[in-house]
Computed example of a mutant assay.
Amino acid sequence: MRNAAIIPQKIYDLNRLKHAVEVWRFLGKTISFTNGVFDILHQGHVYSLSQAAQEADMLIVGVNSDASVKRLNKGPERPINDQNSRALLLASMLMVDAVIVFDEDTPYELITTLMPDVLVKGGDYRVEEVVGHKEILANGGNVVINPIVEGFSTTGIVERMRHQK
């Protein structure tokens, strides 16, 4: 049970995360950032997170707060899992080095504050549609789009559950 104490320490507020990023950079580490709701973790999330982790030495995951998810209009029952549960599950993953919950509609503020070396988005986005892409590219960073793992989405899972009733 020794490692159980590490998990909550991987969940950061912005000030502590900024300090951690400074330390990582001082140590010569590269930083990757991705974000999402991560409401029901599934194979697609695991694939996307593992790909994001391979892009740099350290992986930061931004998680939409409950209020932010509501504003995204993903459905009246969403989020299914609250932000603390979602952050804890992500923090328990070995490939994730830091988790931060953000309340804004987009992670723009986080991205421009932390300035990761690599910005990773899963899905059918184009680079120019990714929030913060201009700033990351202008800073010499990279933007990576991970392919979708077909058949795996939280919205799809919720829809299948609704039809099985």
Rank of each mutant, 00 (worst) to 15 (best):
M1G: 11
M1K: 02
R2P: 02
N3M: 06
N3R: 07
A4L: 14
I6K: 13
P8H: 03
Q9E: 14
K10R: 06
I11W: 03
I11N: 02
D13N: 13
D13I: 12
L14R: 12
L14M: 15
N15H: 14
K18C: 09
A20I: 03
E22H: 04
V23P: 03
V23R: 07
V23N: 05
V23C: 08
R25C: 03
R25D: 05
L27G: 09
L27W: 09
K29W: 07
T30F: 14
T30P: 11
I31H: 11
F33K: 08
N35S: 05
G36I: 02
V37I: 12
V37P: 02
Q43N: 05
Q43M: 12
Q43H: 08
H45M: 01
H45P: 01
Y47A: 00
S48G: 04
S48Q: 10
L49V: 03
S50Y: 07
S50V: 11
Q51T: 06
Q51A: 07
Q54F: 13
Q54H: 13
Q54T: 11
D57L: 07
M58T: 14
M58Q: 15
L59Q: 10
I60F: 12
V61I: 01
V61Q: 03
G62V: 02
V63T: 00
N64W: 02
N64Q: 04
N64P: 00
S68G: 08
R71F: 12
R71H: 10
R71A: 11
R71N: 12
L72S: 05
L72Y: 05
L72I: 13
N73V: 13
K74Q: 14
K74R: 15
K74G: 04
G75T: 12
P76Q: 14
E77R: 10
R78W: 13
N81R: 09
N81M: 14
D82G: 09
Q83E: 15
Q83L: 08
N84C: 07
S85G: 08
S85A: 15
A87W: 02
L90S: 02
L90I: 00
L90M: 01
L94N: 03
L94M: 02
M95F: 09
D97I: 05
D97C: 05
A98D: 01
V99E: 00
F102G: 04
E104R: 07
I111V: 11
I111P: 07
T112F: 01
T113C: 00
T113A: 02
L114M: 01
P116W: 11
D117N: 14
D117V: 09
D117I: 08
K121R: 11
K121W: 04
D124W: 05
R126F: 15
V127A: 13
V130A: 04
G132A: 06
K134R: 14
E135S: 12
E135L: 10
I136N: 09
A138D: 13
N142E: 15
V143T: 13
V143E: 12
V144W: 14
V144I: 15
V144F: 15
N146Q: 10
N146Y: 01
N146I: 05
P147K: 03
S153V: 00
T154C: 09
T154I: 10
T155P: 01
T155K: 03
V158H: 00
V158A: 01
E159Y: 04
R160E: 07
M161W: 04
H163W: 04
K165D: 03
